[in-house]
Design a protein around this nucleic acid. Structure first.
Lengths: 234, 234
DNA sequence: AAGCGAGGTGTACACTTGTCTACATCCGCA
DNA sequence: TGCGGATGTAGACAAGTGTACACCTCGCTT
């Protein structure tokens, strides 16, 4: 049993364009999880059936269900991170904030960037709806392995975002750890906003506004309490 | 079928110290869900076994699994809301913020209240760990019924909190909708912080600090952008 | 005192599940 | 040419599942 699986799992960048077996199973699992239940509680036979494959074929590619879940997450996280990074370069060219000593002025100019970023995230989750929903599910799901993996994905996103914010906005925040902390908070909150956005299409504009306001408020607070000395503008 | 359930459910303050049947099942489900899988994906027989009851007895009390889930959520949400409300009255007597035109001064005085509130929530989730974990799981779970129910629970908490903030802190925020919006954001974020808090006992003090900073930043931002006119202190 | 219904138990059936062993392909390489 | 490993299929097994029907036993009401 062990020999077959080990061999199959190790082939990474093989010539596998006829997306067969492994990939079919992963797609089937994702589709099923998005529409029915959680990734971790899927049935082996169920997935195989959906993929149009024999139940036993599963064993050839994955040794456990967490194994499948990890593969799916890894795959998706790659797509997601790359997708976000690609598009994020756009607004960077559009507007680069000048350094300013006045937080109010700075934030007024940051507003369009925030608006653009929020739109970017919401468009992205709309486009990859099922993958996103599954991801959120598993983030609080039952499998510690998947939880940990997804937590890392989110944290990577937060790091990316923190880098961008530092570079793009030149916020006068002294402690980079604080920036990362804020980024993590924003990412998590955007997870909620995104779920609302997907689930309540009628309220989309309102939710978008909430997200923008939230981020602006937080930036304000960050500048006031974490960056510049409060006495500066009081 | 309907008559049986209704009759059993209506007995509230009856002489039911022999917590029997329905309650046993609910406890079993909660315990099982906390340690093993999600509420919605539990087995009928599994729960009955854990409760030391015959599988068929389940039918006498609940007509479906969502039914059980709803009952559990309703029960817990009652406990939680009441528990929070009870304790929240304490700091109200301790420190009532004086009205002040200076946001910085106001927030400096709000700090202990925030600290106290954060401690309150974190203590509470620690005390009701399994119930809390299950709740979070189902908030993003597969059953739309339970998701909706939990969303409502969280929203009620946000309303409570908004009321308290308005009364306790006398924040000069004009639009009460904004207060509620902020409360909702804080509640959700506290959900994440609480999970971290429970899962990483070694980091507890750090996480507590993050939560406090987050709320203070947000309050700052709210005062600056949503409440008082920005020109006031700039 | 009789009857009724709520709560609880036992048994049974059809079905799904994970896993095992055995058999059939295909492709690359000696 | 033939061989080995990776991939996929077929059938079978015990165990677990949801549900249905029949039965028992209290506590109440009339």
């Amino acid at each position: 049993m062990k020999k077959n699986l080990g061999g199959a799992a190790k082939r990474l960048s093989d010539t596998v364009p006829p997306r067969s077996g492994r990939q079919k199973l992963m797609e089937a699992a994702l589709q099923l999880a998005a529409s029915t239940r959680s990734l971790a509680s899927l049935g082996l036979r169920e997935v195989a059936r959906q993929a149009g494959l024999n139940p036993n074929t599963f064993y050839r590619h994955f040794r456990s269900f967490d194994d499948l879940g990890l593969a799916v997450i890894e795959d998706l996280s790659g797509q997601l991170r790359q997708g976000l990074r690609e598009r994020r370069r756009l607004p960077a060219a559009v507007a680069r904030l000048p350094e300013s000593a006045d937080p109010a002025e700075m934030l007024r100019q940051a507003e369009p960037i925030v608006r653009e970023s929020v739109a970017l995230v919401l468009d992205f989750v709309t486009e990859h709806q099922q993958a996103y929903v599954v991801g959120i599910r598993e983030l609080h799901g039952t499998s510690p392995v998947l939880r940990e993996a997804l937590r890392r994905v989110f944290d990577e996103l937060a790091v990316d975002m923190a880098e961008d914010v530092l570079e793009l906005m030149r916020l006068p925040v002294t402690d980079p750890r604080i920036v990362h902390e804020i980024a993590a908070v924003v990412i998590r909150q955007m997870a909620f906003f995104s779920m609302d956005y997907l689930e309540q299409p009628a309220q989309r504009e309102a939710i978008r506004g909430q997200a923008e306001r939230f981020i602006l408020m937080l930036l304000w607070g960050a500048l006031a309490t974490g960056g510049v000395r409060p006495s500066n503008h009081l």
